[in-house]
Design a protein around this nucleic acid. Structure first.
Lengths: 344, 344
DNA sequence: TATTAGCACTCTCCTGTTGAGAGTGCTAAT
DNA sequence: ATTAGCACTCTCAACAGGAGAGTGCTAATA
């Protein structure tokens, strides 16, 4: 479909536009990229590329601009995925500054997104491990004031989570210990999601258990498991405001709305976690299924725990994004987080 | 200094400008506010008010606009602080929807700021209780994997906080229990800040204790207390983008930078907590000591725990802010949070 | 003496025009 | 197949003119 020359021109246009958001014209291409072709020939090629949907013109007598399809082709077939030199500073910074934060995954992720946005100039995003996919190790119940129980849940993965649970009955610490050991023997090694569904089923079926210790145990456990979605971290709004892509107030509102709708972004990143692909993934502009996110691209990857993806980290920016560099950065970051978590 | 008539005119100008961000002219005043004076007389008054620093003109032949000093006078002497009717819906919403979130103060505050920004159209902010001012009740240490200890700290105020602490020595659960009971007997009833300073002192003085149980206890405790500052919650960026005050990209960058600098806002709100005044406090534009926050106003109040202010909640917006309404809202919110916390 | 009508003046903002500049597509020559 | 040449289109910046809003000042008025 595209011969070598066409590809070269497309590549030059995309790179030039990424570098500087002006529609790129034929003359500019010949001069800047030293093709052994005249502007007129370039124009013919550009015209073909436009026909094929890789480029478009903002208006007659403007240069060309890549379409989402153009970016896609560039990412898949044209851009080099080596960018190690540029990103070396980034790599050193995160390893040097963040390796020590290994006990609090939330802080680690939040700091990571900050660094990511600083270096990429786009939004850094990360999704903390979903509790649901973790494995129940043990639970500890501590009496707090009357009617309050502090629960501390340990997972096999080393996550610790606490929550204060209201109970409508008074329990001694001894009762709590018995409840805890019941839960521990019942659920040891189970996946938290499974436990939740199991509990819901049992609660609807066996109303008989009412007011026994087990029923209380179940009720407490349900409370503990009731907040399933992981935290999301987004950094770098000020950073993106500096980009020429956001010199327009409408564009700013758009990305701000997208950011506010955290649920949508969570959903999106969740998809990444599910598709257990190993590489960095890229969603470009309108490929996105979310209405509010068309116009932006997402570059993301998962980080793993015991070879299972448990969360994701990435970058959101304009479609006019330095994909090559960003992909390399996200790759670095996802591997780094995996390493920190596993090495814990 | 200002007679009754001058005040009325100033009040009209401020209110008109708050209502609609156009410089207000003499003719407009006479018509809208039905003064029994001609535009020419109003002009004379306005000229006086400008001389006194309450008003300024963006340019000759524009109307007048309040200065920070003008807003200050308005807030202190002119505006009515009754706004109950307008805010009734707001009051109902927060009491109905948020009262149930009493076990997790962070979620309560974050939801509160969301509601606050929705109703005010400005940024809602809140500072969670500073751990330092709380009172040690007891600590529980649980063995996590090798070299990791899960600490659960209870305060008299009912706060629970957990943290995973790395230790460079292996301890049995039994050791941990002994350490915990040492800490419990040593620090029961102490203020957390005191404990921290005490620990720092002891660690520098008595190196002798090295490698004993007590030294280990102290080390763990220090870790637990090492993150002193409270969380900050800010909501409503999309909300403020809708205001005419932020139709300019520069203004947007300004407020975005201010938001990113969370430390500064924390500092600012901390001051509110310290000055133990009971009322809602207002900082207008350049009264602010923070460079990045000039140009914005802050309306904030503290919420209390046992009649001690422990955190603050408020609103950040343009100096052209509906002070009357906002002050009433912040008042409602701060009292609401106090009630929820105390009633816990 | 305080108030006001009248008027000249200033400044912004909108609109329309114009010319430069950049880039294109097409055609004919190489 | 490539390219030079040219007419055409579109944007953008600069400029001018006119409407509109508001002011300050002065002289007349109650």
């Amino acid at each position: 479909m595209l011969d070598e020359r066409d590809r070269e021109v497309l590549c030059a246009i995309v790179q030039s536009y990424i570098n500087n958001p002006d529609p790129v014209g034929s003359r500019f291409i010949t001069r800047k990229y030293a093709f052994s072709l005249s502007p007129a020939s370039i124009r013919n090629i550009m015209s073909d590329l436009e026909e094929l949907g890789f480029l478009r013109q903002p208006h007659t007598s403007a240069g060309r601009v890549p379409t989402d399809k153009g970016y896609r082709f560039y990412v898949d077939s044209l851009c080099s995925h080596e960018h190690q030199y540029d990103n070396r500073a980034f790599f050193y910074e995160i390893t040097r500054e963040l390796e020590s934060i290994k006990n609090d995954i939330d802080i680690l992720l939040s700091e990571t997104t900050k660094r990511l946005s600083n270096f990429s100039h786009y939004l850094g995003v990360a999704l903390s491990p979903k509790a649901g996919s973790a494995t129940f190790n043990r639970i500890k119940l501590l009496k707090h004031r009357r009617n309050h129980v502090v629960t501390v849940l340990f997972t096999d993965e080393g996550m610790v989570r606490n929550k204060v649970v209201d109970v409508d009955f008074d329990l001694t610490q001894r009762d709590l210990n018995r409840i805890a050991s019941y839960l521990n023997s019942e659920f040891y090694g189970c996946n938290l999601n499974e436990i939740r569904t199991k509990i819901v089923r049992e609660m609807s079926e066996e109303k008989i258990l009412c007011d026994t210790l087990i029923s209380r145990a179940i009720r407490i456990c349900r409370e503990v498991l009731s907040s399933p979605s992981g935290n999301i971290f987004i950094s770098g709004f000020t950073e993106v405001l500096g980009l020429p892509d956001f010199s327009d107030v409408e564009k700013i509102k758009e990305i701000s709305r997208a950011m506010e709708d955290k649920h949508l972004i969570i959903k999106l990143l969740d998809k990444f976690s599910e598709s257990a692909k190993d590489e960095v993934q890229v969603i470009i502009g309108s490929e996105n299924s979310l209405a509010g996110m068309k116009g932006f691209s997402i570059v993301a990857a998962t980080y793993k725990e015991g070879s299972m993806p448990v969360g994701s980290v990435g970058v959101i920016g304009p479609t006019r994004m330095d994909y090559s560099k960003t992909i390399a950065m996200v790759d670095i970051v996802s591997k780094f987080i995996t390493k920190v978590i596993e090495g814990k």
